[in-house]
């Protein structure tokens, strides 16, 4: 049994807006073991990023606030730490990479300056040592002529290379957890594949756990072991990757998989889309948030919000309907 390093329980995040309080994350719980990769999928606006930003306490407050829950990292509740202590966790213990490599690097600072910054902040390195290490890191993520390129600015790098720089930066202090917030979305497909290979290799060498947020089920399939599907600020299905793809139980998961082209499927099959948009929750959900878009909807769905229940060992789903019969479980 591997050590559990991150244990999030009942996380709730809200945003105060002019239209009312938006309940962005509603009681999310998950755990991360040492060195494992978990995937969080869901469409835009369902709370994936906000969940991870909440764990790192990067939600702008106000308007955002973390209303409840705990996030224990090695037994220490991140949500209760002082800002000062939190700073020593960010970048050093838990680091994060973002979707858009074009905007997440500062255009007026050299790559070297940005790459060495976490090491100077957390590892008390001298500038020379940090420069050396930065060159090694660039080499490690597959950028050649590293020590020369440290003097370059971000606009002299392509998108894929910038994302490599981002990951080098995120890994510079040997973090225990890497949160990847849709890091491949802005890359084209060939670069995506290279990047995923790189991440796998880095994980094998460095042994950090990865939380991979994406809406691309194809990307996550080859990467993660365990997967959570998120909708309306809650996890609605959780299973091992193979199980989830082979035997999806929530109508939303089925919809997501149905909208995905498959090479091994029947060729003439039409891709199915899910009608409608994810809800903006001004109240904590009292009915199933997916009900308005669900084809299996029954009365109970509109009266009570389902919670995650065990469907089979290691496979949990939050749905009132048994989709094989179309009736209540």
């Amino acid at each position: 049994m591997l050590n559990q390093i991150l244990d999030v329980k009942g996380l709730e995040t809200r945003f105060r807006t002019d239209e009312g309080i938006v309940h962005a994350v509603n009681g999310v719980s998950f755990t991360v073991d040492e060195g494992e990769t978990i995937g969080i999928v869901g469409e835009s606006g369902c709370g994936k990023s906000v969940t991870m930003l909440s764990v790192l306490r990067l939600i702008p407050t106000p308007p955002g606030m973390i209303a409840g829950g705990t996030a224990e990292f090695y037994g220490q509740d991140l949500l209760k730490l002082q800002e000062e202590e939190m700073r020593h966790i960010r970048g050093a213990q838990i680091s994060m990479i973002f979707q858009d490599p074009m905007t997440s690097l500062n255009p007026v600072l050299t790559i070297g300056k940005q790459l060495t910054e976490p090491m100077l902040l957390h590892l008390n390195m001298t500038q020379e040592k940090a420069d050396e290490k930065a060159a090694e890191l660039l080499e490690m993520v597959g950028i050649s002529g590293a020590s020369e390129r440290l003097k370059d600015y971000p606009h002299q790098f392509s998108g894929g290379m910038r994302q490599r720089v981002m990951i080098a930066m995120a890994l510079s202090c040997n973090p225990k957890v890497l949160i990847a917030d849709e890091p491949t979305t802005a890359l084209d497909v060939t670069i995506q594949a290279q990047f995923i290979d790189l991440v796998k290799r880095l994980q094998k060498n460095l042994g950090m756990a990865i939380i991979w947020i994406t809406h691309d089920l194809g990307v996550i399939a080859g990467l993660a072991k365990r997967m959570m599907v998120m909708y309306g600020g809650s996890f609605i299905e959780e299973a091992d990757v193979k199980e989830l793809y082979a035997n999806p139980q929530h109508p939303y998961t089925i919809g997501l998989l149905g909208s995905l082209p498959r090479l091994d499927g029947k060729h003439s099959e039409r891709l199915v889309s899910i009608d409608g948009l994810p809800p903006v929750l001004y109240e904590p959900p009292t009915s199933c948030p997916f009900a308005p878009r669900c084809e299996f909807v029954i009365d109970k769905c509109l009266k009570e919000n389902p919670i995650l229940e065990e469907f089979s060992p290691k496979h949990r789903v939050a749905c009132w309907v048994d989709i094989s019969t179309g009736r209540s479980r």
Binding site: L58, H88, R90, G91, F98, T103, S104, L105, N106, E117
Partner: peptide, 19 residues
């Protein structure tokens, strides 16, 4: 995003603002 990115590496407010 680089402002948030700077925060995720653990930079302080003043560092983010001035650097």
């Amino acid at each position: 995003e680089y402002a948030v990115a700077a925060k995720t590496i653990g930079a302080s407010d003043m560092r983010i603002l001035f650097n």
